[in-house]
Design a protein around this nucleic acid. Structure first.
Lengths: 168, 168
DNA sequence: GCCCAACCATTGGATGTCCTAGTATATTCA
DNA sequence: TGAATATACTAGGACATCCAATGGTTGGGC
């Protein structure tokens, strides 16, 4: 996974698609494949930045979400909805964060079905420090042309709304 | 993970970033998070389309790559480089594809270190059929504005070149 | 007031990805 | 020629994700 390839493998795939008579879907195929690869690159950078803190991206996202919660605590199903992941992934992340002393579980005062999660002091500190690291090492120089960032936000925002992520 | 949220959680995160005094990196943060989520949505669609064929995206990618190989066979390290994944992921995928009778391993004629992988007849057939399904169910209506597809390809292409994926 | 459908969190199983080691084969160079 | 280095693949472990199934808990309809 090291040295650059002589040519863009996605452009190559696009040419293959066109040669096979699938020219009508070749461009969307290339765009979707490019998103897959871009996500992979970005995730690797993020994980590498978070590693010194003992965090993965999944656990960081939960920590960051909690650090912005008005009441300081959040029901697990709410976290699942906001982060758009399966409830089992939240359970898994909370298990590990709790074992690391970064969050606490507590029963919901009125609804016996739901569990609340809350940052510990250590968790709040780590959220701050790891966010600072991500801002400095990843978000401040993402590798996009500055003018393209807004394009991306608009295009992907429309896509996500279209896919049913949110109303608006 | 069902009903749409009342508001865009990524726009929400961007506002939080700005309020914390990180306005300079709020936009790239939002763009990167949007790419993560978009990839997740697209991957779910692709996996769902491939499920009836007994394929995952990882295995499909390998099948498709082999179906375009000029010689019909490919060394494993070449597959690893072209698909941009860890060599162990290729080993894993080939293990399962071989067990399913879709590919064969064979020793390289001159280099005793390398293993060649090759589609079986069943593998070639399945590659064709599953590609047709993806074209019909995912790539033909990706959910992007038609004009945005070319923007995406250009922006993400520049990003990937910048990240060292390929020269050009 | 009671019952059942809906909801919430968890468990266990399958898959995929990466990393670290380890083994075997090639190549380079003193 | 023979040792050091580089390359190719495999083995085992950690982590995350999804799905299906389980066991409590609520709350609306009768």
């Amino acid at each position: 996974m090291g040295t650059p390839l002589p040519r863009d493998p996605i452009a190559e795939a696009r040419r293959n698609w066109e040669e096979q008579g699938w020219a009508d879907v070749a461009a969307p195929m290339a765009a979707i494949t490019a998103i897959m690869r871009t996500q992979q690159i970005l995730l690797a950078r993020i994980e590498s930045t978070l590693k010194p803190f003992g965090l993965t991206f999944a656990r960081y996202e939960l920590l960051a979400l909690l650090s912005f919660a008005r009441k300081g605590s959040l029901p697990m199903n709410k976290a699942s909805a906001l982060l758009q992941v399966h409830p089992t992934s939240i359970t898994n992340a909370v298990d590990r964060l709790e074992r690391a002393g970064l969050v606490d579980r507590s029963p919901h005062p009125t609804d016996g079905r739901t569990t609340l999660i809350e940052l510990t002091t250590a968790g709040r500190t780590l959220a701050k420090r790891s966010t600072a690291a991500l801002n400095a090492e990843v978000f401040s120089a993402p590798g996009f042309d500055p003018g393209d960032v807004d394009h991306l936000i608009r295009i992907l925002g429309a896509f996500r709304r279209n896919a049913g992520d949110f109303d608006g």
